[in-house]
Write a protein that binds this DNA or RNA. Structure first.
Lengths: 129, 129
DNA sequence: ATTTAAATTGTTATAATATAACAAGATGTT
DNA sequence: AACATCTTGTTATATTATAACAATTTAAAT
């Protein structure tokens, strides 16, 4: 694992500490005091962090979350659960699921090496309410 | 199934005829001759069409595709394959896959009623090249 | 140490995607 | 007809993301 550059480290630290996915401009506002002034600086760091698997993008929310799944260091196979009320996002770490999807073949016999799965529902807390 | 309104019908027809997912502003440019002038008119129709399951949003592409899967009229469980070269998108219709995902429970025993899965790979054509 | 290539940064401007807020008209139901 | 709901039209604005260009830093190779 290569070391992160200055901007990459600043932005990764912020995302890693956050209990919730962060959006690019939220990140920008939070790192301006550290000298990162422009959107592009944020997006470039995000691109790289996604590429090396340190973070994932929640596509349906345009938000970024740190990877807490040691098995997905390739950043190619991601699965999340998203609470539709509180928007809490959790990375799903299920050997069964990832095995099933990794082996899934469609009608044409096509195999996929990369996927993104987003489950929607109610989290424990919001279910109770 | 309720009938579509004028704008909804115009926009659905366009998406339904398209061999590829369409983006909101591409749709806008293509329906301006029919009197739909503003982005909001497009987004409102898209929202409704998604809601009633006539189209799906490809989240990773910000694009919309007509539903060609008779079994997902609730628009709650979608799976697509996306070619990373030509960007061709196909809706996956696999009883096994949908059954597996519908029954998937995470560690907390949580069941999800809705999901979106996007597989990435190379389509037949692009694989050959 | 110097060269070199690659990666990273900084900066301004702009493109692309999406919603807020308000007013009016159409439609369906009782 | 009265009512509620859905749909439309319109302007303005918010949010998300990239283009284009130049300079600097880093790492590795010689």
């Amino acid at each position: 694992m290569q070391n992160l550059s200055k901007n990459q480290q600043i932005i990764f630290d912020l995302i890693d500490k956050s209990p919730e996915p962060l959006k690019a401009y939220t990140i920008l506002y939070n790192v301006q005091k550290k000298g990162i002034k422009a959107p592009l600086q944020v997006y470039r760091a995000l691109d790289k962090l996604v590429e090396i698997g340190k973070i994932h993008k929640i596509e349906s929310r345009n938000a970024f979350i740190a990877c807490h799944n040691s098995s997905c260091r390739v950043a190619k196979a991601t699965a999340f659960s998203i609470c539709e009320i509180c928007e809490k996002v959790t990375e799903i770490s299920s050997a069964g699921l990832s095995k099933y999807l990794a082996n899934f073949k469609d009608k044409d016999g096509m195999k996929y090496i990369k996927y993104n799965l987003e489950f929607f529902g109610l989290c424990k807390k919001c279910k109770v309410k």
